[in-house]
Design a protein around this nucleic acid. Structure first.
Lengths: 333, 333
DNA sequence: TATTTTGGGCGAAACGTTTCGCTTTCGTAC
DNA sequence: GTACGAAAGCGAAACGTTTCGCCCAAAATA
């Protein structure tokens, strides 16, 4: 039903090759150019991207796989990636792995089937096997936020261990000695951030009692429960470090629900990721802030380089994060 | 480089037609079936969806256009739509209109170019002209959350006017007489919800002073500023109704920042849309809750019907919303 | 045994582009 | 006036499927 290049050819008397050349930016005689444009307008011609893709083997579509769209980090990240790519005329095929390695592997295959030109993956798996099909099909992949041992592809992230260490050091500088952590221990970032916490305490010669270490899953509920437990301890921590956005929310919620404990009078809090929520919750949180927008930009930049044929060695790019001041940390003595 | 159906044909000695038939669920002789499966496995054959789409004119891809991915309603909605569609083997091409009518119209064209099988649109525009290209290309569209006069397509939404009216009536029942509203007046839902507010007050014989009516844009900042202004009024309202999630957040933030006013002692609050935030903010908000998940399911169901050839008259489906109890409303005397 | 039915198989065309390599045209320089 | 080169045009093949209509053999029926 829609007009094809063949209709334009009939209308103008020019060959397919000439029309195609012009439509792709080639030169034609001025009179022919006028003819083509007129025909295009009259017939409402639009190039059929499917047919084009079949021969060029490019779809101008990027696949994005995130471990969980509901997590705020991903939502924000998607927003930036989308705005950059749509400006460049790329479409975005978005897949949610729902924290499942199986689903993640399926997503990769699905996107390959859809013939995406490249993929940006915020992964679940800690083993790079699921990326093999992409490797095999020579579709470039950029990992974001998390990486893994045998991953042979670019990765854009922050130095999680160092960042966490700096964060906890802030608590130590405020004379806190009893510092707890609530983290996810199921994936890369959680584990790295935990290491940073441990490093900071070790370096300061502080002890790390097991009851202060809440290692669980990446979920608000876990943050909530863990904080409840910490508050119940006889020897309560004076400060708690939460290593992602959802854990932070859950923990704050638990504190707010406990009338006998206030932040920062009774307990100091240090959170992670500065999404909109932090503007409405009381107290205003002290937070580790990741440069989400810049990470998105960098990921796109790197991916487009690869798509355009750059085959240099894989890069691991560490972005700078910073601490955002708030009033959730009390300075002791 | 990847194997094609032609390779399978060579390997098995069967014709293209036979292979294709089998791959699409047709019957072949048992021996041939074995041959084909063996060849598929050996050559790692995967059907090329692009080539298939070119001839079938189906891409098994759905376009989703939202007015702003950053708004919580959309994020949540996308999550549900994605999970249903991915289960059915559909891909999701997501576009953000950034609250711009121009961008929205571009998005529609972009998706048509990508030959999506159908679209789900949470629109910006209040005029249906931007949908014409889709109509013309006979690509089905389902609107969500908002509709418009001349829109000749299915729409899944709540009855915004009635919902708002019920909500405000709750305040009235609690003996509030000075009730303010903070709403967006730029788009369909905001306007409808405003009407519901007005209806409820009129019906109760209460006055609606201009200074109590904050009609602005859909943004947290506007909610924040408006609430600040309301609190400054000499004749302060005793209750405020906010008509969407972002406005609610902003308003709560403003109240929380004002040490001389507490909720619900000094001011009662009634919000809209129950996203994760409401769990962490104090006080626990009384909220109008939209059935986001059900709306997503219904939208997909309706769209798939249309894609599969149902051409009945357009439907406008109103889903049921409900009030979620909280402690942000004080009962006066 | 002769005739019909059934069902699997096949060849070829079609989907709407791009692209390769060849031909034509035209202007310029000698 | 001839030769040459650049620029533009063109025909045809290719991309990897699906599908239409026909053929044929085997099974079922008479």
């Amino acid at each position: 039903m829609p007009a094809t290049i063949r209709d334009i050819s009939k209308e103008t008397g020019l060959s397919l090759a000439t029309i195609s050349k012009y439509l792709n930016g080639g030169n034609v005689l001025p009179e022919n150019r006028v003819k083509i444009e007129a025909a295009v307008k009259e017939l409402h011609y639009e190039v059929n991207e499917i047919a084009r893709s079949l021969v060029t083997k490019k779809t101008r579509t990027i696949g994005v796989v995130v471990y969980n769209v509901e997590c705020a980090f991903n939502g924000s990240f998607l927003h930036y990636v989308n705005s950059i790519l749509s400006e460049k005329g790329y479409g975005l095929l978005i897949c949610d792995s729902s924290n499942s390695e199986r689903k993640e592997a399926e997503n990769i295959k699905f996107l390959l089937n859809k013939k995406v030109d490249g993929m940006i993956v915020v992964p679940v798996s800690s083993n790079a096997d699921f990326l093999k099909p992409a490797k095999h099909a020579e579709v470039p992949v950029v990992l974001v936020d998390r990486t893994m041992k045998n991953a042979d592809c670019d990765c854009i992230k922050i130095d999680n261990r160092e960042t966490a260490m700096n964060a906890v050091t802030l608590l130590i500088k405020n004379n806190h000695k009893k510092i707890a952590i609530i983290c996810s221990a199921k994936e890369y970032t959680g584990i790295e951030r935990y290491k940073g916490y441990r490093d900071a305490l070790n370096q300061a010669g502080l002890s790390v009692p097991a009851s202060y270490q809440k290692k669980g899953i990446h979920a608000m509920e876990y943050g909530y429960e863990s904080m409840k437990q910490l508050l119940k301890l006889k020897d309560r921590p004076t400060a708690v470090f939460m290593t992602n956005y959802e854990l932070t929310l859950g923990a704050v919620m638990a504190v707010n629900e406990s009338p006998s404990f206030n932040c920062p009078e009774h307990i100091s809090l240090l959170g992670f990721d500065d999404m909109i929520l932090s503007h409405v919750i009381q107290p205003r949180m002290y937070m580790v802030v990741q440069p989400v927008k810049e990470m998105g930009e960098k990921a796109v930049e790197q991916l487009l380089k690869r798509i355009n044929g750059n085959h240099e060695d894989s890069l691991e790019i560490n972005m700078k994060s910073h601490l955002k001041r708030g009033n959730s940390i009390r300075s002791l003595a």
